[in-house]
Amino acid sequence: MNTSALPAALADIVDDFQALTEAERLQLLLEFSQGLPELPERLRDHPELLEQVVECQTPLFLTVETEQADGDSPERVRLYFKAPKEAPTTRGFAGVLHEGLDGLSAAEILAVPDDMPELLGLTRAITPLRMRGMTAMLGRIKRKVVASGDRQPSAQS
C-alpha cells in the first residue's frame, strides 16, 4: 500500500511522518495531540452523544456528523473527538485522523485502507499494542459513517 490510495490531507500527514526519524515522529505525534480541537459546546455538555472506543488504552470518545450538501458545497462528514490531556498518544492519533479526514465525503473516508495507521512508521516506537487503538479508532469512524448513511435514504439513491 502506498499513499496514493489516501485522501490528500491524510497522504500529506503520512508523508510527513515517513520523512522523519523515529524520535521526530513521536514529537510530531505530540504536536498532533496538542492540535486536537476542543469539542464544540453543544457536544461538550452531552457526553451521551459520543461513543467510547474501548480498544484504546485510555478513554477516547468520538462521534461523526454529516453536513448536508448546500449549494456548491457537497455533503461532508465532520469528526469530533474527546480524549484526556493525560493521554497524549491517544490524542495524537485522534489529531491525525481529524486533520486527515474531517470534512471529507463518506465515500472518501470509507475508502481509507483499514491498516492506514501502520503507514505512520510508529509501530516500533509506540508498540503494536498501542497501535491497535488507532486502528480501532479508524474502524469506529468508518462504521459510524456507514451507519449514518443508512439512516439517510437520500444517501442510498
Partner: peptide, 22 residues
Amino acid sequence: DEDVLLYETGHIPGAVKIDWHT
C-alpha cells in the same frame, strides 16, 4: 508511564524517561 508521550507533556524537572515497552 503507560503513555509513551506523557513525559514530553511535562515531567518533574530533571527527570529522565524510561519507557516500559520500548
